[in-house]
Amino acid sequence: MADAPRIVVVGSVNLDLVVRIARLPRAGETVGGGTFARVPGGKGGNQAVACARLGAEVTLLASVGRDPIAEEALAGLREAGVALQLQESDDDATGVALIQVDADGETTISVAAGANAVLAPRELPPHDAVLCQLEIPDAAVLSAWEECTGLFCLNAAPARPVSVDADLTVVNRHELETLVRRDGLVALTLGAEGAVLLDDGAEVARAAPPPVDAVDGTAAGDAFTACLLVSLLEGRAQDDALARACAAGALAASRFGAQPSLPAASEVDAILDTGS
Protein backbone atom coordinates (compact mmCIF):
# COMPACT_ATOMS: atom_id res chain seq x y z
CA MET A 1 0.00 0.00 0.00
CA ALA A 2 1.21 3.50 -0.81
CA ASP A 3 0.43 5.02 2.61
CA ALA A 4 1.83 3.82 5.91
CA PRO A 5 -0.17 0.80 7.11
CA ARG A 6 -2.53 1.56 10.00
CA ILE A 7 -2.14 -1.03 12.74
CA VAL A 8 -4.14 -1.30 15.94
CA VAL A 9 -2.36 -3.28 18.63
CA VAL A 10 -4.50 -4.64 21.45
CA GLY A 11 -2.14 -5.86 24.11
CA SER A 12 -0.14 -5.64 27.30
CA VAL A 13 2.07 -2.95 28.79
CA ASN A 14 4.68 -3.78 31.44
CA LEU A 15 7.64 -2.22 33.13
CA ASP A 16 10.53 -4.69 32.83
CA LEU A 17 12.82 -4.98 35.86
CA VAL A 18 15.93 -6.54 34.35
CA VAL A 19 19.01 -8.08 35.95
CA ARG A 20 21.92 -8.91 33.66
CA ILE A 21 23.91 -11.78 35.14
CA ALA A 22 26.76 -14.05 34.00
CA ARG A 23 24.57 -17.15 34.24
CA LEU A 24 21.00 -17.91 35.21
CA PRO A 25 20.64 -19.30 38.76
CA ARG A 26 19.40 -22.81 39.46
CA ALA A 27 16.41 -23.33 41.74
CA GLY A 28 17.27 -22.11 45.23
CA GLU A 29 20.57 -20.55 44.11
CA THR A 30 21.68 -16.92 44.37
CA VAL A 31 24.04 -15.58 41.70
CA GLY A 32 25.70 -12.23 42.41
CA GLY A 33 27.46 -9.66 40.28
CA GLY A 34 24.42 -8.56 38.27
CA THR A 35 23.47 -5.13 36.93
CA PHE A 36 19.94 -3.71 37.07
CA ALA A 37 17.80 -1.70 34.65
CA ARG A 38 14.17 -0.60 34.31
CA VAL A 39 12.92 -0.88 30.72
CA PRO A 40 9.47 -0.38 29.12
CA GLY A 41 8.07 -3.69 27.90
CA GLY A 42 5.05 -5.97 27.59
CA LYS A 43 4.35 -7.85 24.37
CA GLY A 44 1.67 -5.38 23.27
CA GLY A 45 3.85 -2.37 23.97
CA ASN A 46 6.89 -3.99 22.35
CA GLN A 47 5.03 -4.89 19.17
CA ALA A 48 3.42 -1.46 18.94
CA VAL A 49 6.82 0.25 19.21
CA ALA A 50 8.31 -2.19 16.70
CA CYS A 51 5.55 -1.55 14.15
CA ALA A 52 5.98 2.22 14.55
CA ARG A 53 9.74 2.06 14.07
CA LEU A 54 9.18 0.01 10.94
CA GLY A 55 7.05 2.78 9.44
CA ALA A 56 3.47 1.92 10.42
CA GLU A 57 0.89 4.28 11.92
CA VAL A 58 0.12 2.59 15.24
CA THR A 59 -2.54 2.84 17.92
CA LEU A 60 -2.25 0.78 21.12
CA LEU A 61 -5.28 -0.23 23.19
CA ALA A 62 -4.02 -1.24 26.62
CA SER A 63 -4.65 -1.11 30.38
CA VAL A 64 -2.41 0.39 33.06
CA GLY A 65 -2.75 1.23 36.72
CA ARG A 66 -3.04 4.70 38.22
CA ASP A 67 0.38 4.33 39.81
CA PRO A 68 3.87 5.85 39.60
CA ILE A 69 5.24 3.25 37.17
CA ALA A 70 2.57 3.68 34.48
CA GLU A 71 4.28 6.62 32.78
CA GLU A 72 7.64 4.84 32.95
CA ALA A 73 6.08 1.81 31.24
CA LEU A 74 4.53 4.04 28.56
CA ALA A 75 7.61 6.16 27.87
CA GLY A 76 8.91 4.09 24.95
CA LEU A 77 5.50 4.12 23.26
CA ARG A 78 5.23 7.89 23.51
CA GLU A 79 8.77 8.29 22.16
CA ALA A 80 7.96 6.05 19.17
CA GLY A 81 4.86 8.11 18.32
CA VAL A 82 2.33 5.41 19.14
CA ALA A 83 -1.20 6.74 19.74
CA LEU A 84 -2.46 5.51 23.11
CA GLN A 85 -6.02 4.59 24.02
CA LEU A 86 -5.70 3.57 27.66
CA GLN A 87 -7.96 1.95 30.19
CA GLU A 88 -6.79 3.09 33.63
CA SER A 89 -7.43 0.98 36.71
CA ASP A 90 -7.71 2.24 40.30
CA ASP A 91 -7.57 -1.28 41.70
CA ASP A 92 -4.81 -2.92 39.65
CA ALA A 93 -1.13 -2.02 39.35
CA THR A 94 0.61 -1.50 36.01
CA GLY A 95 2.03 -4.81 34.79
CA VAL A 96 5.57 -5.76 35.80
CA ALA A 97 8.00 -8.36 34.39
CA LEU A 98 11.01 -9.64 36.34
CA ILE A 99 13.66 -10.62 33.79
CA GLN A 100 17.07 -12.24 34.16
CA VAL A 101 19.43 -12.19 31.18
CA ASP A 102 22.63 -14.24 31.06
CA ALA A 103 25.85 -13.68 29.12
CA ASP A 104 24.51 -15.67 26.13
CA GLY A 105 21.30 -13.66 25.91
CA GLU A 106 19.12 -16.41 27.42
CA THR A 107 16.34 -15.18 29.69
CA THR A 108 13.97 -16.16 32.45
CA ILE A 109 10.84 -14.01 32.76
CA SER A 110 8.21 -13.83 35.50
CA VAL A 111 5.20 -11.57 34.91
CA ALA A 112 2.71 -9.92 37.25
CA ALA A 113 -0.05 -9.00 34.79
CA GLY A 114 -1.73 -6.40 37.00
CA ALA A 115 -3.95 -4.09 34.94
CA ASN A 116 -3.30 -6.13 31.78
CA ALA A 117 -5.54 -8.86 33.22
CA VAL A 118 -8.58 -6.56 33.29
CA LEU A 119 -8.30 -5.05 29.80
CA ALA A 120 -11.88 -4.90 28.54
CA PRO A 121 -13.12 -5.14 24.93
CA ARG A 122 -12.77 -1.79 23.20
CA GLU A 123 -14.04 -0.16 20.02
CA LEU A 124 -11.33 -0.23 17.36
CA PRO A 125 -10.20 2.89 15.49
CA PRO A 126 -9.87 2.71 11.66
CA HIS A 127 -7.18 0.20 10.66
CA ASP A 128 -5.63 -1.98 8.00
CA ALA A 129 -4.67 -4.65 10.52
CA VAL A 130 -5.20 -5.61 14.16
CA LEU A 131 -2.44 -7.30 16.16
CA CYS A 132 -3.09 -9.17 19.42
CA GLN A 133 -1.06 -11.29 21.82
CA LEU A 134 -2.16 -13.43 24.77
CA GLU A 135 -0.98 -11.38 27.76
CA ILE A 136 -4.52 -9.96 27.92
CA PRO A 137 -7.93 -11.58 28.58
CA ASP A 138 -9.54 -13.81 25.97
CA ALA A 139 -12.55 -11.47 25.82
CA ALA A 140 -10.37 -8.57 24.63
CA VAL A 141 -8.76 -10.76 21.96
CA LEU A 142 -12.08 -12.19 20.75
CA SER A 143 -13.67 -8.74 20.59
CA ALA A 144 -10.73 -7.37 18.58
CA TRP A 145 -11.01 -10.30 16.16
CA GLU A 146 -14.75 -9.86 15.74
CA GLU A 147 -14.46 -6.09 15.14
CA CYS A 148 -11.45 -6.30 12.84
CA THR A 149 -12.20 -5.08 9.31
CA GLY A 150 -8.70 -5.69 7.96
CA LEU A 151 -6.04 -8.35 8.48
CA PHE A 152 -6.12 -9.97 11.93
CA CYS A 153 -2.75 -11.12 13.30
CA LEU A 154 -2.38 -13.17 16.47
CA ASN A 155 0.92 -13.78 18.20
CA ALA A 156 -0.30 -16.76 20.23
CA ALA A 157 2.01 -16.16 23.19
CA PRO A 158 2.04 -17.03 26.03
CA ALA A 159 0.65 -20.33 24.80
CA ARG A 160 -3.02 -21.07 25.42
CA PRO A 161 -5.90 -22.10 23.14
CA VAL A 162 -8.02 -19.21 21.82
CA SER A 163 -10.76 -19.72 19.23
CA VAL A 164 -10.02 -17.02 16.69
CA ASP A 165 -9.61 -17.52 12.95
CA ALA A 166 -6.58 -15.30 12.40
CA ASP A 167 -5.36 -14.32 8.94
CA LEU A 168 -1.78 -14.51 10.25
CA THR A 169 -0.67 -16.40 13.35
CA VAL A 170 2.86 -16.28 14.81
CA VAL A 171 3.96 -19.10 17.12
CA ASN A 172 6.98 -21.06 18.29
CA ARG A 173 7.00 -24.87 18.40
CA HIS A 174 5.34 -25.06 21.82
CA GLU A 175 2.70 -22.47 20.98
CA LEU A 176 1.86 -24.28 17.73
CA GLU A 177 0.67 -27.27 19.77
CA THR A 178 -1.96 -25.14 21.54
CA LEU A 179 -3.50 -23.59 18.41
CA VAL A 180 -7.19 -24.31 18.01
CA ARG A 181 -7.15 -23.29 14.34
CA ARG A 182 -4.16 -23.69 12.03
CA ASP A 183 -5.64 -22.52 8.75
CA GLY A 184 -4.50 -19.32 7.06
CA LEU A 185 -0.91 -18.14 7.29
CA VAL A 186 1.08 -19.49 10.23
CA ALA A 187 4.62 -18.29 10.90
CA LEU A 188 6.53 -20.85 12.96
CA THR A 189 9.65 -19.43 14.62
CA LEU A 190 12.54 -21.84 15.12
CA GLY A 191 15.02 -19.81 17.17
CA ALA A 192 18.49 -19.73 15.68
CA GLU A 193 17.22 -21.82 12.75
CA GLY A 194 14.98 -18.98 11.57
CA ALA A 195 11.32 -19.42 10.67
CA VAL A 196 8.90 -21.19 8.33
CA LEU A 197 5.73 -19.73 6.83
CA LEU A 198 2.87 -22.19 6.37
CA ASP A 199 -0.30 -21.64 4.34
CA ASP A 200 -3.04 -24.08 5.39
CA GLY A 201 -0.28 -26.38 6.65
CA ALA A 202 1.90 -26.30 3.52
CA GLU A 203 5.32 -24.61 3.65
CA VAL A 204 5.45 -21.56 1.38
CA ALA A 205 8.60 -19.84 2.64
CA ARG A 206 11.60 -20.44 4.88
CA ALA A 207 14.24 -17.99 6.11
CA ALA A 208 17.27 -17.96 8.38
CA PRO A 209 18.37 -14.99 10.51
CA PRO A 210 21.60 -13.13 9.77
CA PRO A 211 24.40 -13.99 12.20
CA VAL A 212 24.56 -11.74 15.28
CA ASP A 213 26.05 -11.90 18.76
CA ALA A 214 23.16 -12.64 21.11
CA VAL A 215 22.81 -10.15 23.97
CA ASP A 216 19.16 -10.31 25.11
CA GLY A 217 16.39 -12.33 23.49
CA THR A 218 13.56 -10.65 25.43
CA ALA A 219 11.83 -8.88 22.50
CA ALA A 220 13.19 -10.84 19.54
CA GLY A 221 9.85 -12.53 18.93
CA ASP A 222 8.04 -9.20 19.15
CA ALA A 223 10.36 -7.66 16.55
CA PHE A 224 9.81 -10.69 14.30
CA THR A 225 6.02 -10.50 14.58
CA ALA A 226 5.86 -6.76 13.95
CA CYS A 227 8.20 -6.87 10.97
CA LEU A 228 6.38 -9.79 9.34
CA LEU A 229 3.03 -8.01 9.67
CA VAL A 230 4.29 -4.63 8.45
CA SER A 231 6.16 -6.23 5.53
CA LEU A 232 3.06 -8.14 4.37
CA LEU A 233 0.90 -5.01 4.68
CA GLU A 234 3.45 -3.19 2.52
CA GLY A 235 2.77 -5.75 -0.20
CA ARG A 236 6.10 -7.58 0.00
CA ALA A 237 6.36 -11.17 -1.21
CA GLN A 238 6.02 -13.80 1.50
CA ASP A 239 9.64 -14.96 1.30
CA ASP A 240 10.90 -11.37 1.47
CA ALA A 241 8.61 -10.57 4.40
CA LEU A 242 9.79 -13.64 6.30
CA ALA A 243 13.46 -12.82 5.68
CA ARG A 244 12.92 -9.28 6.96
CA ALA A 245 11.14 -10.61 10.05
CA CYS A 246 14.05 -12.93 10.84
CA ALA A 247 16.47 -10.05 10.42
CA ALA A 248 14.43 -7.84 12.75
CA GLY A 249 14.35 -10.58 15.38
CA ALA A 250 18.09 -11.10 15.13
CA LEU A 251 18.76 -7.37 15.50
CA ALA A 252 16.58 -7.21 18.62
CA ALA A 253 18.38 -10.22 20.12
CA SER A 254 21.73 -8.49 19.57
CA ARG A 255 20.78 -5.57 21.84
CA PHE A 256 19.85 -5.12 25.48
CA GLY A 257 16.32 -4.46 26.67
CA ALA A 258 12.88 -4.90 25.16
CA GLN A 259 11.77 -1.68 23.46
CA PRO A 260 15.26 -0.13 23.22
CA SER A 261 16.35 -3.12 21.12
CA LEU A 262 13.67 -2.86 18.45
CA PRO A 263 15.05 -1.95 15.00
CA ALA A 264 13.97 0.65 12.46
CA ALA A 265 13.22 -0.33 8.86
CA SER A 266 16.54 1.17 7.71
CA GLU A 267 18.42 -1.12 10.11
CA VAL A 268 16.61 -4.18 8.77
CA ASP A 269 17.50 -3.08 5.23
CA ALA A 270 21.14 -2.57 6.21
CA ILE A 271 21.69 -5.98 7.80
CA LEU A 272 20.00 -7.74 4.87
CA ASP A 273 22.15 -5.79 2.38
CA THR A 274 25.26 -6.73 4.36
CA GLY A 275 24.36 -10.41 4.25
CA SER A 276 23.50 -10.48 0.55
Rank of each mutant, 00 (worst) to 15 (best):
residue 79 E to C: 00
residue 79 E to Q: 08
residue 80 A to V: 01
residue 80 A to K: 00
residue 80 A to Q: 01
residue 80 A to Y: 00
residue 80 A to M: 01
residue 81 G to K: 03
residue 81 G to N: 05
residue 82 V to G: 01
residue 82 V to C: 03
residue 83 A to F: 04
residue 83 A to W: 03
residue 83 A to Q: 14
residue 84 L to E: 01
residue 85 Q to L: 15
residue 86 L to Q: 03
residue 86 L to I: 02
residue 87 Q to H: 12
residue 87 Q to P: 09
residue 87 Q to K: 08
residue 88 E to C: 09
residue 88 E to K: 08
residue 89 S to A: 12
residue 90 D to E: 15
residue 91 D to Y: 05
residue 91 D to W: 08
residue 91 D to E: 15
residue 91 D to G: 00
residue 91 D to F: 07
residue 91 D to M: 09
residue 92 D to R: 12
residue 92 D to N: 07
residue 93 A to S: 14
residue 94 T to C: 12
residue 95 G to S: 12
residue 96 V to S: 04
residue 96 V to F: 07
residue 97 A to S: 15
residue 97 A to F: 03
residue 97 A to P: 05
residue 98 L to S: 11
residue 99 I to C: 05
residue 99 I to E: 07
residue 99 I to H: 02
residue 100 Q to N: 11
residue 100 Q to E: 15
residue 100 Q to L: 15
residue 101 V to R: 04
residue 102 D to Y: 03
residue 102 D to N: 13
residue 103 A to F: 02
residue 103 A to S: 14
residue 103 A to Q: 14
residue 105 G to W: 07
residue 105 G to M: 14
residue 106 E to M: 06
residue 106 E to I: 04
residue 107 T to P: 11
residue 107 T to C: 15
residue 107 T to L: 15
residue 109 I to P: 01
residue 109 I to E: 05
residue 111 V to A: 03
residue 111 V to W: 02
residue 113 A to P: 15
residue 113 A to V: 05
residue 115 A to Q: 10
residue 115 A to D: 09
residue 115 A to S: 11
residue 115 A to E: 12
residue 115 A to F: 10
residue 116 N to W: 08
residue 116 N to M: 12
residue 117 A to E: 14
residue 117 A to K: 10
residue 119 L to Y: 02
residue 119 L to V: 05
residue 119 L to G: 03
residue 120 A to T: 11
residue 120 A to P: 11
residue 120 A to E: 15
residue 120 A to M: 14
residue 121 P to C: 01
residue 122 R to V: 12
residue 122 R to E: 15
residue 123 E to W: 08
residue 123 E to L: 13
residue 124 L to R: 08
residue 125 P to Q: 07
residue 125 P to K: 02
residue 127 H to C: 09
residue 127 H to K: 10
residue 128 D to W: 02
residue 129 A to T: 01
residue 130 V to E: 03
residue 131 L to N: 06
residue 131 L to Q: 07
residue 131 L to S: 06
residue 131 L to G: 06
residue 131 L to T: 03
residue 131 L to A: 04
residue 133 Q to V: 04
residue 135 E to R: 00
residue 135 E to G: 00
residue 135 E to Y: 00
residue 136 I to H: 02
residue 137 P to V: 00
residue 137 P to G: 02
residue 138 D to G: 06
residue 139 A to S: 13
residue 139 A to Y: 04
residue 140 A to L: 12
residue 140 A to F: 07
residue 141 V to S: 09
residue 142 L to N: 01
residue 142 L to K: 11
residue 143 S to E: 14
residue 143 S to T: 07
residue 143 S to K: 08
residue 145 W to V: 05
residue 145 W to S: 06
residue 145 W to F: 13
residue 146 E to F: 02
residue 146 E to Q: 15
residue 147 E to I: 00
residue 147 E to P: 04
residue 147 E to S: 13
residue 148 C to V: 06
residue 148 C to M: 10
residue 148 C to E: 02
residue 148 C to D: 03
residue 150 G to V: 06
residue 150 G to P: 11
residue 150 G to T: 04
residue 150 G to E: 01
residue 150 G to D: 04
residue 151 L to Y: 00
residue 152 F to W: 06
residue 152 F to A: 06
